[in-house]
Nucleic acid binder design. Sequence first.
DNA 1: GCTTTTTATACTCATATTGAGCATATAGCG
DNA 2: CGCTATATGCTCAATATGAGTATAAAAAGC
Lengths: 326, 326
Amino acid sequence: MSRPIVLDLSAVILAVTADQPRVLTVRRRDAGHSTPDSVPAMPAGPLDPESDRTLELALRRWIREQTGIEVGYVEQLYTFADRDRDPRERSGGSRQVSVAYLALVHEQAVAAGVPAQWQNCYEFLPWEDRRGATRPPALRAALGAWATAAPSAATRRLREERCAICFGLTPAGWDGYLALERYELLYEAQLIGEARRESVPRSARSSRARDFGLGMQLDHRRILATALGRVRGKLKYRPLVFELLPTTFTLLQLQRVVEALAGVRLHKQNFRRLVAAARLVEGTGSIRSGGPGRPAELFRFRREVLRERQGPGVRLPVAATRRAAR
Amino acid sequence: MSRPIVLDLSAVILAVTADQPRVLTVRRRDAGHSTPDSVPAMPAGPLDPESDRTLELALRRWIREQTGIEVGYVEQLYTFADRDRDPRERSGGSRQVSVAYLALVHEQAVAAGVPAQWQNCYEFLPWEDRRGATRPPALRAALGAWATAAPSAATRRLREERCAICFGLTPAGWDGYLALERYELLYEAQLIGEARRESVPRSARSSRARDFGLGMQLDHRRILATALGRVRGKLKYRPLVFELLPTTFTLLQLQRVVEALAGVRLHKQNFRRLVAAARLVEGTGSIRSGGPGRPAELFRFRREVLRERQGPGVRLPVAATRRAAR
DNA sequence: GCTTTTTATACTCATATTGAGCATATAGCG
DNA sequence: CGCTATATGCTCAATATGAGTATAAAAAGC
């Protein structure tokens, strides 16, 4: 019989806390991984072809077992199956296929003793956060060097064009949806640690190459980039944000969650006009004070919007993302 | 060792010809299927975990072998893995997982002797075509009957609400993107032949239940619905249409392809204003005559639009889809 | 040759949406 | 009180959208 297939379920579990998108990571204790235990990974585990009726049920089971957390909204992301994406394969093991899922939750405490941890998504993909001045300053230079190092003038122009589109240096501006394209560009440019870890024996690794952001096990950072791109795209036409918010919230809370995911700042007055016009939310009458500033009204999601509007979501203004590109 | 996993690649290969979206189907000759050979299926074949480096390469290999056609644009759609989605499993076989892909091509002739065939997508999903008066007239009544037959008043209201949203009976109008939701609704309502074929022994099948549209093998119609929804959504923010058009085309050709996929009619003058304003195309100067009417200028896709615009695509006007709903 | 039909393309116009501000209200704090 | 921070209301110009009208240029029918 031919080499067997192992089908893994992996979960990108996202929450937004304190204006930051957070991802739930585990420190895997499985044997067989060549990467050290200290490298974070997504919760993941194999499908049991006998007893798991659906992929989603298997996924929820693994999440529960590995993190103790119950997830609500879940959606399938992508299936990763390139050969040698897992070093276990090279040592003659089975073919490792991974079906990745996206889950959205409110951040909840991890039980004591469970080796799971919430981490800021942008620690792994720092170039994706365009809200402040915190993006990696050396990135642009490194990309320029990569383009210059092209073997031919034509390749060089292609590389420059790709960089310009991916990083918003064109009139089109910054497009949050392209998170995966950016990851793959940086991977090709050897600016992602995993690119070297997987293709070169440990001893021969180029020490000159650098890594922007923290690394993850296997291709889990690619999976995270896929998830981020998907969320950013879907935000615009599905009411996903509300999965990440408490049942009642202020408009600023809503805006901050959108901004955290999209990675850009928005114009406050226009944002509230937008959600008001789209009738995405309704006031509850009650008011939340406590912090500084004038107290804000609490709102809740209007489910009825699904009946009233096509593609109900928070359409991000393009200009805001154009501004962020500067 | 536990029951093995077989990973299939299946391809929804779409083209648009004569104002109709077409899908490439095969008459499978494999043994082991309980469905008769005359039922169409998508091209599909198992991943060879030894020799197939990536899923996409395996997919292209299977498409070539089964249809003789070379596909260009390819994108992963979804992974289907529910238990018992394939009757081969029930007879103690391996777990059947299928990674579905979408491919876009220009319709090309199938070589003689190859058991592949182009068919109109809307023959399988007739309710998805809202361009004319051709939608199944009895569908609405059948859905109404299903809602009425609900076991409780609450369930009934839920069913009615789902029908209204899915079939555009609300102020939100018709949303082409919801193709999969509609399929699943009809499946639940026992208005899809496959729903009965799979859950009930052949002898006990309800003869009263009906099927709107032609059936396909296994869950391939569900996969087709997934593909249609994906194309319709992505059309709006990616220049997918041009994969289906020759290098030069008239604006009416472009509009007809969009309409065929979206399943709705569009306002001609506004459509050309839209593509002109988005700078998606550029005139070639040459002119195509031959048919009736004033000759039209030939246009070509402007690749540069990727640098200039965010989410470059054919944003369908919502109102057009609202009109179609009436 | 003239009319009808069919398609292409230009232009109009009222209305809606967007981007960017200004202005004012109401809290906590030193 | 004055300062700062947030909430919320409102304006205004620039664009985009929906729905037409008008005219041009071909083929087909007679």
